[in-house]
Amino acid sequence: MKRRHVFVSLFAMALATGCFGMAAPALALDDLRIIAPAKPGGGWDQTARSLSEVMAAMGAKGGTVENVPGAGGTVGLAQLIDQEKGKGNVLMVNGLVMMGAILTNKSPVTLDMTTPIARLTGEYEVIVVPAASELKTVNDLVAKLKADPGAVAFGGGSAGGTDHILAGLIAKAAGADVAKLNYVPFSGGGEALAAVMGGHVVAGISGYGEWAGQIKSGELRALAISSPERQAGIDIATLKEQGVDVDLANWRAIIAPPGLDDAQKNALLGAVDAAVKSDAWKKVLTEKNWTDLYLPGDDFGKLVAAENARTTEILKGIGLVQ
């Protein structure tokens, strides 16, 4: 143990002095493991695999990805907190979805029990209507929502997930009764998409990337995107510029087990920092169309606290959380 600490601090020093290159021998993180709290193939899994590849290319040993799916990632979170405590070689991917899952599942383990490392990427959400819908702008939607919240059936992903939270935030910002939100969760992106395209629900909410093709081909009309300002290459007005003061990113981040000492924490922060700033990671971002939302360390910790407060408030307003 002692020897490893020396090693880790040496590594942190090496990083601090900037003598970290491609040829540098080994991140001191021997036997690095990244937990993806989801099945293979999804966003969290792909984040874990991409990060592990980039870190391995930079010399981290091991770099295995473990899939621990279940319950919006809270099964993986429980493993991180109970079984990986104090281990300086373990990372786990998480995101906004896990925050909602912790609340709705009344999970005994929470994010503030872990060591925050960094927010990595994110995706903004779109609000869409079928091409034939009478709703042309967000203001039309807001007016309808105010008049009769029940008449606006939103279709989207799982209950308490990012799509649901955004629907709640929009209703609240529009001055409608959040408790009367009519949100219809579908299992899997395909079913929600079909329900919107077939006109079975009034509006749909999803990550932009998932429905980008249907928006571009004109089968869906995007009313707004949930980013704070317009995104390059996406011709959709933001909620904010249309007078609905809401912005929301479905962020993905990386966290570490509880009980790490400063040297362990700094080593992980350094290793992730180096990986995120590498060209290989930039290539991953463009390939996968992920928006870079890198935010390391304590700032990320603060963001988690703020997002948690906002999510709790909305989910309580909706009635999903008592």
Binding site: G150, A179, K180, I318, G319
Partner: peptide
């Protein structure tokens, strides 16, 4: 089932 807390729904 009796123990469940039920959120409002349409």
């Amino acid at each position: 089932t009796m123990q469940m807390q039920v959120p409002p729904s349409y």
